[in-house]
Design a protein around this nucleic acid. Structure first.
Lengths: 251, 251
DNA sequence: AAGTGGTCTAGACCACTTA
DNA sequence: AAGTGGTCTAGACCACTTG
């Protein structure tokens, strides 16, 4: 029963109680919460108030509602750890990163769309070109075992892609990086800027995200040995399924 | 006016319309949305339905509600880019990372609490010690310009902290890393695992997060030259204010 | 005082799942 | 058929902000 004199809204009290019962283990992962109509009785509030409480827990990512079945405590998702290392470091097996092999099992690009567009202000800055410079855009949807796990959009100045297989959906053996090196653009290093935000409705449906799950965003820029940026890759993935592992030397 | 025959729920139609008006720029960042009672008239739905629509946009991080004032289109937040590089790389000025100086302007630890606890399964694995091994825990709340921007909890095997200033709230000049090196634990490299999730209610209030803003989590492990893990640092920060920048060699 | 969002009620009907 | 969550209504009163 909620305390009407506490000043705390009823729906918050209900949410706090449920959250505490989840934290204590009384409601374990996979367990069903009491039905909304049951909670109406036990807490002495109306059904919309119960729903407000449950919705709060949903946006916190603590529970999942299933229409016709009930509301369930979210199971701990196993996150796949993606090692963001240089090729040689990965081959040397430095670090005991898990999931590296699993990551290699990705079907690298199930669906690719190639388009062309002028550089906007952000691309101009990242690539070091003028606004309006023509870019080659490779929009990729990456699947693993039939489920979409990652969205990636790469943009190149068209000066490096013209006349190469990079402007075809199938960029050939070794992918775009091999084509770049063949064109004399030897890669030196990548920078990655990692952020997070709530998904757009489109991302939410394509990546099959449950409510309360953010996306990780990675902006990966490839630089050649002469310091020139040749690719900007915007990657979006479920924060529920992935973490990104980096290694930093101390000195 | 919503279309009652479309099959799409009314609150979704209202949300979609508002989202489209925000995307088109008709409702610009900082603009106030029509009041809930106005939308009741314009869309021909009840107020709870309007609120469902607005709440959806709130959890998406698109709008902010201010009690007594209105609902406003979220302003683009300027994210501070934190360069996660080795000390020497940062001193060499490699890469044109912004915000590096700003990051250096942090008050490194406004509030530190030191406690001791036995290692749980996760700490045992990360530190390579037995479950139950005594750990020194440094819980830090980091502020910048008076606002809390980061929470960090470092855990060390007590075997490396015993008898040092690391077990004091003030760990002395150069911080814990200087104390480690003085104790013969020369640091070699760090691994960082980056993830994201929705904040707990506690994090939400301490970091002053608006609804719909996830947190970035970083698990940073420090390794000595002999390959031993000596520190696990769990960091939490607002995804609204920070992105993390890494550099990866190509080969 | 007037307008805003925040909370809450007591219903109703629908869509989905399971037995 | 029964139980579940999903949607929706027509109100009410409160708390906060602004003129």
């Amino acid at each position: 029963m909620v305390d009407r004199t506490s000043g705390l809204p009823a729906y918050r009290q209900v949410a706090d109680d449920l959250r505490a019962r989840i934290a204590s283990g009384e409601l374990a992962p996979g367990d069903r919460l009491p039905s909304e109509r049951q909670m109406v009785d036990t807490y002495g509030v109306s059904r919309p108030t119960v729903r407000d409480a449950v919705n709060l827990l949903r946006t916190e990512g603590l529970v999942i509602a299933e229409h016709g079945r009930g509301v369930f405590v979210r199971r701990a998702t196993s996150v796949m750890r993606l090692a963001r290392l240089s090729r040689s470091a990965r081959e040397a097996g430095r670090g005991a990163f898990l999931g590296d092999a699993a990551a290699a099992g990705f079907t690298p690009s199930v669906e690719v769309q190639v388009t062309f567009e002028p550089a906007d202000a952000r691309m101009a800055e990242l690539l070091g070109v003028a606004v309006g410079t023509e870019l080659c855009v490779r929009d990729r949807v990456m699947d693993a075992d039939g489920v979409t796990v990652q969205l990636a959009v790469s943009r190149f100045p068209r000066s490096v892609t013209k006349g190469t297989a990079m402007e075809q959906p199938d960029s050939g053996p070794g992918g775009t990086h091999s084509r770049l090196e063949e064109g004399g653009h030897q890669l030196d290093r990548f920078t990655e800027a990692v952020g997070a935000r709530m998904p757009t409705p489109h991302e939410s449906s394509v990546l099959q995200l449950s409510p309360g799950v953010p996306v990780l965003t990675v902006t990966r820029v490839a630089f050649t040995v002469d310091g020139r940026a040749v690719e900007v890759n915007d990657i979006v993935m479920s924060a529920d399924r992935f973490s990104l592992a980096y290694e930093i030397p101390a000195t």
